[in-house]
Amino acid sequence: MFHIYCPYCEEYREEEEFHPRGQAHLQRPADPENCSDEQWGDYLFFRDNPRGIHHELWVHSVGCRKFFNITRHTANYEILETYKMGERPSITAETLAADERQSGVQTASGGWQTVGARPEDEALNTEARA
């Protein structure tokens, strides 16, 4: 269950109040009449669908009913930030990769998920051994 911060209500609310609406920041072709079939098909149907950082559109459907954006990790589902329509994300896959390089941390982002097993968590493993 997600606990989502609505940037308009400025409160955390439960996932059930919201609806996901797919990839954010899609640009509708400026001149649809003169698009090629490829351009129009790409706009309509082709999405990023990354295993990793994803910027997506959500609507607070039973709250303020406003659309806003969420930056979320699609493998571990962590919500990294929420921001209003028209704003740009402050966290992206690029900035995150740069941060990781700087702090020298190896993250297990996007690996194969095994139910219950978290080999990357040293504390848990120590606890299990003791």
Partner: peptide, 13 residues
């Protein structure tokens, strides 16, 4: 579940 996810798990609702 309506969101994009690779986690092999979804939400309780």
């Amino acid at each position: 579940d309506g969101y994009v996810g690779y986690g092999q798990r979804g939400s309780y609702p």
